[in-house]
Write a protein that binds this DNA or RNA. Structure first.
Lengths: 150, 150
DNA sequence: ATTTGGGGTTCCCTCAAGGAACTTCAGCTG
DNA sequence: CAGCTGAAGTTCCTTGAGGGAACCCCAAAT
């Protein structure tokens, strides 16, 4: 095969990339999350080739990230996030945080996020699910896990 | 140009993808984070083509994610994470969380993460940086920001 | 019966990923 | 000194994925 297959690696990063690592996939996820749920809408918004969009949508549906759902008697459908897909959007929120901080420039962030719970314009923060304190790259050690391969 | 350029889009997700969205880039970042810091080590660990590895490393150095640093009188160097690069590793931690949950299978996670602050094997949790409560896809509304383009 | 529009397919062309061989440069070895 | 070695690329060729445009199918509306 030409493009190396990441799905077989013993690494959750590689496996996740196998699901949404292909070009355009995160932006398609973003569009569906933002309410562009139909083929034509996504295609027009992104300017992606129709061929590639078809491939990506099928791939995402096949992995249970999106669900294809009819919205008319005619053969029309829209794509909606599954729960599994919505959890993937967390990844996008972290990308947004990094991009807003390092790449937005003087114009500022293109999109703002209002948190329902507090009503504020917010960004995400990473915490340890045990002790609630910040958890970032330099706060952790790596250890082999049960799924490691020798 | 053949491959669409994401860097010019008014979207922090697209801009971030322009920095680490190419195939292999997140895995290279992972390797450097995990202590594989030299060309030969990364190449052997990933099985990536030397040509592509050279391109990706130059790209990441050019964007200030990695720093090329000599470690010998001979022309030998290793790659180390910059602060900007270490912040990008947050993205990997969220990918790991999702991959561990949805793709690890019965074998369990291949790698475990021990949090320095509490000593526990932990995963990351996303919180609002204003109110500290959980912040996920379904907890937010999107609004146009100052950097939006019409 | 014809038009319309969503949702794709098909086709061709170009460029990027894979892979292997080749290069360069400084230090070591005999 | 000549030759070898090992890290870090560079070059070259082949294959296949992305871009773009044209085409197709189907059900409803006119």
């Amino acid at each position: 095969m030409q493009r190396t297959d990441f799905g077989d690696m013993a690494c959750s990063i590689a496996r996740t990339l196998d699901v949404i690592g292909e070009p355009w996939s995160p932006l398609i996820l973003r569009d569906v999350f933002a309410g562009f749920t139909r083929f034509e809408q996504i295609q027009a918004d992104l300017g992606i080739s129709r061929k590639v969009l078809t491939e990506r949508l099928n791939h995402l549906v096949g992995h249970g990230i999106l669900e294809r759902r009819p919205y008319d008697r005619r053969p029309r459908h829209e794509y909606v996030l599954t729960d599994k897909g919505a959890e993937l959007v967390d990844l996008l929120l972290v990308m947004v945080r990094w991009g807003d901080k390092h790449l937005a420039g003087d114009a500022g962030p293109p999109v703002l996020y209002r948190h329902h719970a507090c009503g504020q314009i917010s960004a995400v923060d990473l915490r340890c699910d045990h002790c609630d304190k910040p958890m970032h790259a330099r706060d952790i050690d790596l250890l082999p896990g049960p799924g490691a391969r020798p």
